[in-house]
Design a binder for these strands. Structure first.
Lengths: 231, 231
DNA sequence: GTTTCCACAATGGTCATACTTATCGCCCGC
DNA sequence: GCGGGCGATAAGTATGACCATTGTGGAAAC
């Protein structure tokens, strides 16, 4: 997932720093400064900066330097940027945004999946819902997380929409964040798990509306919980 | 919007070529080849490749070269990638994906806007809906497009969700594509315009459900039209 | 005192070249 | 037939020079 080489190392340090606000919006970096700070050549610095530029986090101008662009202009759908923000200071804001996005997208994806999913995908959903039931009861949070993430990723994939499918990794990051930061009840709520089973059933039987409704209940519930936790 | 400098020029040629499939998935480019093909130095080629890499369109490996990654891995939410795809061979697929995305996101955004919009935004929406009515009747497609795009961008902005807000430019690209490629009736449908007015009214009066419903009718209608045109 | 304009200097942008490093695939020996 | 090592290959990094652009400050004109 991360980028490799020396530019990748720069990026792995600069990106999170900018995302966390340690290097504030509007501040100006200079190539020479970065060369010295990281002990690398101009080439390497420039390539790292180019990548930040293509994420629209910085802009480079002659006779000025490299300026950090306003947050509103960042490529906020870029998985790397999302990961950086989730790890940093505005994790809360990022989770909220993603929560709303899920409420909008996942029900639609579930509805589409009911008509578009392959047989394999339908089987996978049923199996994953079952696994979630069992690992949830057992309190095995790690396994539960894995199945939960797989479930949502499969639904998104099964929607047949390439853009929806791409949100799978992002949703996984959200769920993982929730588990890792102990924003989750020790035993996943039975009600939520039941809704997952309902989505699986509805998709299997081709009932788009029911799948959509059940999925909406899931993600709306998750968003509510999140708001409660973030005070 | 475009990137500047020589790497930007490479990108403006390579990106669309890859997006259009002229440089097919799995093919291998070599730095030296690109140097000669474009008559630029290694530095420039590498920076362009880095940017393509951060869009996940290519992967660079020692002793192998630069390979074009499968479409499914591309950063499909990147505005630049979207623009390239809209300009190229799979414009249809891209429009379809974006259509579904709009159906999912814009109603939710409209619903949020009803409670989150600032007074200025509410005023702007009313004004834009009026403008659309007038320019639509007059058959001034250019002005209509501008107001239509502004309207949707404003709703997305007013939702208060940064991720929704970012889709404004993309939606504009979709609408522009529809107009430019003559995928649009000469006089915009009065019914659609009326729905825009209804969204504006609902947002102004804080009626989230009505705003959501009206917006859903708009984008669902647009998706239907699109499907009809794409046969 | 204010405005206009120009030259200068600072900074990113590009180039050419040399060297380093990882790794794919072939060949040799078992 | 199989496994390990070695060499060729292509990307990765460093360096130093030069080019191009542009913000700024100071001089000159008003």
């Amino acid at each position: 997932m991360d980028f490799q080489g020396l530019p990748g190392r720069l990026l792995a340090d600069l990106g999170p720093s900018i995302a966390a606000g340690e290097i504030p919006v509007g501040s100006i970096l200079r190539i020479e400064g970065l060369e010295e700070r990281y002990g690398v050549s101009r080439t390497v610095v420039r390539e790292a900066v180019r990548m930040l530029e293509s994420m629209r986090m910085v802009a480079s101008r002659r006779r000025v330097g490299i300026t950090v662009r306003p947050k509103a202009e960042w490529d906020v759908f870029n998985p790397t940027v999302i990961a950086w923000r989730l790890a940093g200071a505005d994790r809360g804001a990022q989770l909220r945004s993603l929560g709303s996005l899920r409420v909008a997208v996942e029900p639609a994806a579930a509805g589409l999946a009911a008509t578009q999913a392959t047989d394999d995908q339908r089987r996978a959903l049923s199996a994953l819902a079952m696994e979630m039931t069992m690992t949830g009861r057992a309190g095995d949070l790690a396994a539960f997380l894995r199945h939960d993430a797989d479930f949502h990723a499969t639904v998104l994939q099964a929607s047949g929409n390439e853009m929806f499918a791409h949100l799978g990794d992002t949703v996984e990051a959200v769920l993982r964040g929730r588990t890792e930061h102990h924003l989750m009840p020790h035993h996943p709520e039975e009600y939520a798990v039941q809704l997952h089973r309902e989505v699986a059933e509805a998709v299997c039987s081709g009932d788009g509306e029911r799948a959509e409704r059940a999925m909406r209940a899931i993600v709306a519930g998750a968003l509510e919980e999140l708001e409660a936790i973030l005070e």
